[in-house]
Design a protein around this nucleic acid. Structure first.
Lengths: 346, 346
DNA sequence: GTGAAAGCGCTAACAA
DNA sequence: TTGTTAGCGCTTTCAC
């Protein structure tokens, strides 16, 4: 079993020094085109592939970033992870995906840098971690937080404008003639919840009354929870249900639709439903689901770019100015609010 | 910025040699318990974490395996990837997830070992790659193929018994009194298709006739395709539709249900539907979806274990005996066939 | 059981 | 512009 080709072998083959080969591989300037071609040829001929372990060791980096998400089989996170994978690959990073299952311990360990090895950066999507934990963090690994919580400028944060997005969604319900709009997925007393705030803003702007008993919290982002809360809402308002429901996630919305259909209500004829996240299933559901679609590709590349910048700042000793970055989103109008086929605005 | 602790620092702190520390870290025998404790204490005190780049460089391995799946936001693959991640972590491997988007070029490149760096192993889930490509493969990287194709013993293959699973699913339809059972997701002439074969076996065993025009192919695993084919089937059989449909994937099944509902047919009252894969959505759909649930955790750990074994064989020069490994599966009975709540058999 | 030293493949000073 | 060489942090002979 012959050993695989090394940089030195390429150099020997091309009749140049290792430094020259390295220059070519790393796209340095000041390499004559013919030299570049010659080295490239040698690389092809012997089928050379760089050994990243060696490179990373020499560079003092890990060549790896960690992405912590609750669960990969939750479609929103799967799609997000796919985007992060691609963005990271462009920065020559491999992604260590860690599933937290929503366990705060796992997330805190990640914040503390407890990985099998040192990471060049960390992208954390969490509902549990708040400013307090961040303030206590001592680990210096570049960090980007994802998600709808507000981190008070303590760390780099990438998200869509959840308040505005929620307002857009609810405004769409109002525009299509709905007046009795419930929200499922937040406690009415949770003043910080951005999607609840957007909901309230939309109601207020339209002069619609807000009813605390039409704002239902959920314990987890499961369809079952949405179904349960919707059923409760219907039971509490016999013969007088809401004519629309804004759900904080698509997954919850699917459960809500289930409950409505079970109770003999038609969607959207009797009750319109809007979700949030644009999970793939929303296109296959019956009816298809109107939702807010965050620009996940943008979120992923912003996050990775920030890690890159933070790492550079760290190694050069430059200060890094933390910010809240906002990605765009779209309202995707489907059957659950209009009964017609896909259109998209904004 | 102080440099992070190295093995040598631990050794100095504990007053032992690097070799001893290495022995402790790698769980070698012949280390006295008190020595072990002393080294462990030193590790904790200075917060040492091994540098995997250095370790892998020294060991001559990559510390990384590649997992190639069509798309991470397809729920079946997301769930599978999650399981592979966990299994790989147990073998100290990081997983480089590569999305092929079903592009055969990407899959062939993977087979040829075209990754940013050398991999210790490759797990490939593909519909496109067949025995021919495998026969031509020259790269020696340990490989495990996933999925329902038959690779004729050319490579290690891990899957459930798709023929038996499909037969189980169709048998369930027959057991619940259905007699006019269509299949959506395979061409009637595709003799190799395992799920089609299982469908046929079940029909034959029950003495039910098989109708080629009730076997509908799909061009892709999208809900839209299922919807289109089901609509076609209904149009071709006005007033006389099938009373059950076996779909080759859940995703297709959801489209099929959509088409049925659009055409005013009730599921399962008029037409029962069975899917395949047990994607999370199946639990949130209306009705919830009866399906075959492959043991993904078993598939993932079998695959990773085989890579481990293949790598060992490769480095020791031992031959590795390729086999077809079968993971178990379950029929999950839900509303789309019974109208009642979740039960599970086998 | 423990310790010293060579080497894994690459990068980046430093020279030329 | 190109060549030489000293590490990066770890494992692993091979003596002790």
């Amino acid at each position: 079993m012959t050993t695989r080709p090394r940089l030195a072998d390429v150099a020997a083959r091309a009749g140049v020094s290792m430094k020259t080969v390295s220059n070519v591989i790393n796209d340095f300037e000041h390499v004559s085109p013919q030299m570049r071609a010659r080295v490239q040829a040698a690389i092809e001929e012997i089928g050379y592939r760089p050994n990243l372990s060696a490179r990373n060791l020499a560079l003092g980096r890990a060549g790896m970033i960690a992405l912590v998400v609750p669960q990969l089989d939750m479609p929103y996170f799967a799609a997000l992870a796919g985007q992060v994978l691609e963005a990271a690959a462009r920065s020559n990073w491999v992604v260590l995906i860690q599933q937290s299952a929503g366990d705060p311990t796992v997330e805190r360990d990640a914040l503390a840098g407890h990985f099998p090895q040192r990471m060049d950066g960390l992208i954390l999507s969490s509902q549990r971690i708040g400013p307090a934990e961040l303030r206590e963090r001592t680990d210096r690994t570049p960090l980007v937080m994802l998600g709808e919580r507000n981190y008070q400028g303590l760390v780099q944060h990438v998200a869509i404008d959840n308040v505005a997005a929620a307002q857009t969604a609810v405004q769409h319900l109002i525009d299509s003639g709905r007046q009795r709009i419930a929200l499922i997925g937040s406690s009415p007393t949770d003043r910080r919840h951005p999607r609840l705030r957007g909901y309230r803003q939309a109601l207020r702007a339209a002069g619609l009354p807000e009813r605390a008993d039409w704002i239902k919290p959920i314990r987890s982002n499961l369809g079952e929870e949405g179904e349960r809360q919707m059923a409760e809402l219907l039971a509490e308002n016999p013969g007088n249900p809401p004519d629309a429901v804004f759900c904080v996630t698509d997954w919850v919305a699917l459960g809500v639709i289930r409950a409505l259909q079970t109770h003999g209500l038609r969607v959207p004829d009797d009750v319109a439903v809007v979700g949030f996240d644009d999970i793939p299933y929303g296109r296959a559901a019956t009816p298809t689901l109107t939702t807010i679609s965050p620009d996940r590709a943008a979120i992923a590349s912003m996050a990775v770019a920030s890690l890159d910048a933070q790492l550079t700042a760290l190694t050069t000793g430059t200060p890094y100015q933390v910010s809240n970055q906002q990605a765009s989103y779209q309202l995707i109008i489907r059957e659950s609010t209009t009964g017609s086929h896909t259109r998209s605005i904004q």
